[in-house]
Amino acid sequence: MTSPPPSRRAVLRSSTVAAGGACALALAGCVPAVSAGPSQGSTPGTIPTTGTPVRVGKLSDVPVGSTAQGKANNVNIVIFRAAQDKVYAYSDVCTHAGCEVAPSGADFKCPCHGSVFKGADGTVITGPAKQALPRYAAAIDGEWITVSV
C-alpha cells in the first residue's frame, strides 16, 4: 500500500518554512556587530594613503576650533582646525548608517540620525553611531590645508 501524495498546501507550507529559515540565516550575516556604546575616547587611526597631499581649502577660512568641509581627489572630507598650526581631516561618512556628516561648530553632526562626532579626534559624542570617524593625513602647507587620500 502506498501513501497518498502530499497535498499542494502541505508542499507550499514546507517550502515556505524552508525558504523563511534560509532567508533568516542569510540576513543574520548582514547584521553589523554592535558595541556597548559610543566610542570611549579612542582616537581613530589614520586611513592609510599613498596619494600626494591635495589642497582642500585655505587655512584662513577655518578659524582655530572650528570645522569645515572639503574635497580631496573627489573624496568628501571634514576638517577640524585644532590649533594655529594643526588640522585634522576625517571621512565625512557617518559610521552608523553611511550618511554624510557636516560641520557643526567644533564638531560634526549627522543629519540622518543625530550622531555627533568630536572635531578634535573624530570620536562619538552622541550616538547612535558607535565608532569614530576614520582620519586622513592632514597638514598645513603655507596658507593651504592639504589632505592625502
Rank of each mutant, 00 (worst) to 15 (best):
A68D: 00
S35C: 05
A139Q: 06
N73F: 08
D107W: 04
L25S: 10
P44A: 12
G51H: 13
L133I: 08
V116K: 02
P4G: 06
E143R: 10
A68G: 09
G105P: 04
Q69G: 15
A138F: 03
T95V: 05
A102F: 00
C30V: 06
L133Y: 09
G45M: 02
G70C: 10
P103H: 02
P6V: 11
G20M: 04
A137D: 15
G51R: 14
I140S: 00
R135T: 08
V62R: 03
G51Y: 02
C23Y: 14
A82N: 02
G98F: 00
T146D: 06
G119V: 00
Q69D: 05
G122S: 09
G98D: 00
G51W: 02
K71N: 09
V34Q: 13
A97Y: 11
G119N: 10
Y88C: 08
H96R: 08
V17F: 15
A19Y: 02
P44Q: 04
V101M: 06
D107M: 15
T2Y: 06
C112F: 14
N76W: 08
A68H: 09
A129R: 09
G21I: 15
R55F: 04
P5A: 04
P48M: 15
L27A: 15
V54Y: 14
G105A: 10
D107G: 07
S35A: 03
I140A: 13
G37V: 10
S91F: 08
A24H: 06
P38G: 12
